[in-house]
Each structure stands twice: as C-alpha cells, then as structure tokens.
Design a protein around this nucleic acid. Structure first.
Length: 354
DNA sequence: AATACGGGGGG
DNA sequence: CCCCCAGTATT
C-alpha cells in the first residue's frame, strides 16, 4: 500500500473531532490556521471559540478595532498574528467583498499567510493539490525516510517541501494534509512516539535504524538575552492607574503596559529606578515607589528571559503626566486593555478595586 | 541565511 | 532546564 493510503487509513480511524474540520468555509479555516501557527491545538482551541462567537464573519472581525482584536488574542502570543489577522480581515471585507482568494498563489499575498497556511487553506477549502509542511510533517518525513538534513536550513526546507509535494495524494489533498499532520501530532510525536502500534513501522528508516530520538535534526537556535523590567503601578485616589501603549516594532507591539523602567541590573530601591528612568517621571513620585514583589518574576519567552518587578506608587492625583512628553493614559478600566501575560497576572493578583 | 516574535506544556 | 508546538516577516 502506498504511503499516503496508509496515512489516510490511519487518519480515518484516529482523527480528532475538531471544529474547523467540519467546514469548507475559508473564514473559520483561515482563523484556525493563523491561531495554530507555532501553537498547540489545546492552547488555541478556546481562542478559536471566543473569536468565532465574537466575530462570526470576516465582516465582524473587520469592523472591530485592533485593540479589541488584541484583547481577545491576549495570552496566545505572537501578537503580530493578531495584527495581521485584523489587517487581512479588513482587506478581504472591504476590497474583496468578503470573498477569500481561492488559490495557493493568491492566498499567499495575504498578510500573515505564508507557505504552510496558504497550502492548508487552498487544500482544505478548494481541494488544490498543494502539500502542507509544518512541524508534524517535517518529523514524519525525516523519520520515515531517514533524512537528516536540518529542517530549518534552507536546503532542508526545500528538500522536505519537494518530498511532501511528491507524496501528496492529489485526488484528496484535503484528507491527506490533515492525515499527515494528525499522524505527526498523535502517533509520531516528538518524544516517545508510539512506534509499537505504528502502521508505518516496517518501512520507517528511523525505527529500523534506531534513529527516532535523533530525527528530525534541527540547527541550534540563538541564546536568550536577559532583561530587567520595572513596572510602575501609579494609582491615584480614584483608582485611576497609568498605562501606555507599546509602540514601535518589537515585543508586545500595540499592547498596553504600566510605565516601564528598563534597567541593566536588578533594582531594589527607588533610587535605582530614578537613576535608570528615561520617562522623566518626577523624582518625588519615584521616591514613593513601594516594591511589590521582592523576588523578581521570571518571565521566559522563546528568545528572552525577563526579570520583572512591580512597584506601586499611590498618589493623590495623576496630574503630573501633563508635564511628560510620553503619552500615558489614566484609566480605571484596565481590564479592557490588551496586556502581556506577565502584567495580566499581576493585575489578577493585585486586584484593583473596581 | 539568521533572527525576532509569546506563551504553555512535557520530559 | 531544554525542546516543541498546524510559521511568518524582516533583516
């Protein structure tokens, strides 16, 4: 039996019941694919339901504000996905009459839609015979064929893409693409795959040569850099608190946060804050800072290690911000703003009185 | 060709 | 602690 037939047979028995598999409507499929980029299904699923409920159609999503979209996306990470999602929704709704492109080539022109996502939408919605290559596919193919070309090298990307396309079942690309990804997720998992019950075992090079644990190969990634973040929770007598929008490119773009003082080392006293402050916050205000967490919170990102401290400053009124060049915002509705997870956790713990 | 970009979960 | 997850955009 052919490779693709074995995978499809396995899939028809073992497939999970996932909401985006019940439809050919490109809107929910596109939404799910964006959400699942570098994200486990278990993590993305609740967000998918939230988004479909809040934005049932691409027009609902297009008519929302970016702040609204980011707020709903809060906690899912890689926020450029949310910004691109919203931008593409507006493009589809207003320029394309709400109709998604229906070819791999056209789909790839959409913001946030790359090689993988274009293949997924084109095959799932329109039966175009284009093979998906995601993390699951790399793993299944590298093991089954014993390919040790690093999957994140230029040659590897090309090699696996060509192989995947050759193996694709052109008659039912939508089923095959789902099948190989599901097989990688459930059967041929990264660690301790279930080789004993595997239908591909006899022809699997990695299994036969005991290479399962060393495939796929991957080039080492860059090391993380450490940073020290000091957030100033400046609250007035009416429970207004100061926040700002993160602008410019970089982490958490367009999300909100408390005024931030980044320091080259761990800070323990208000005078440390004063020495590193570049916001030009008046010294007499910083002097009143009370350290909320003695031990810095370690916040790990894929490319960064953050040591975060929160400093609480209670003052009578926030009028001093009128003298600052930075655009801070006074709010007693902080829960309505999209914030990074490390700030969300602080807010939940601190409990502003509402 | 490398790097930036989140957060959660498993071993 | 390390690795991986239905990758993409930018440099």
């Amino acid at each position: 039996m052919k490779f693709h037939n074995k995978l499809i047979d396995w899939y028809l028995v073992n497939a999970r019941d996932l909401p985006w598999r019940k439809t050919q409507d490109p809107y929910p499929i596109w939404l799910s694919e964006i959400m699942l980029q570098q994200t486990r299904i278990s993590q993305g699923l609740p967000y998918f339901f939230k988004f479909i409920e809040e934005f049932p159609t691409v027009f609902h999503l297009a008519n929302a504000s970016e702040d609204q979209v980011l707020k709903l996306w809060q906690g899912l990470g890689y926020y450029s996905r949310a910004r691109n999602l919203h931008s593409t929704a507006k493009h589809v709704a207003y320029n394309l009459n709400g109709i998604f492109p229906n070819t791999y080539k056209e789909l790839k022109t959409l913001k946030g839609v790359g090689d993988y996502t274009a293949s997924a939408i084109a095959s799932f919605c329109y039966r175009e015979p284009v093979a998906v290559v995601d993390g699951n596919v790399y793993r299944v193919l590298s093991r089954f064929f014993g390919i040790d070309t690093p999957i994140n090298s230029t040659e590897g990307v090309k090699e696996f893409k060509n192989l995947a396309q050759k193996l694709l079942d052109k008659k039912q690309p939508h089923i095959y693409n789902q099948a190989i990804m599901e097989f990688g997720a459930l059967q041929c998992s990264p660690k301790s795959p279930d080789c004993n019950s595997c239908p591909l075992q006899t022809n699997c090079v990695a299994f036969q040569q005991d290479l399962i644990s060393s495939l796929p190969r991957k080039l080492k990634k860059t090391k993380v850099q450490e940073k020290f973040y000091n957030y100033l929770v400046i609250v007035d007598s009416r429970e207004n608190v100061l926040i700002e929008k993160r602008t410019g490119n970089g982490i958490w773009k367009n999300l909100y946060q408390f005024p931030l003082i980044e320091s080259p080392k761990d800070c323990n006293l208000p005078k440390d804050l004063i020495s590193f402050d570049e916001n030009k916050i008046p010294q007499e205000i910083l002097e009143k800072a009370l350290l909320y967490n003695e031990e810095p919170i370690k916040h790990i990102l894929s490319h960064r290690k953050l040591w975060v401290k929160f400093w609480v400053i209670n003052i009578e009124n926030l009028n001093f911000i009128e003298n600052l060049s930075k655009s801070f915002i006074m709010t007693n509705q902080i829960d309505t703003f999209a914030v990074p997870v490390v700030i969300e956790k602080f807010i939940d713990t601190y409990g502003f009185s509402k």
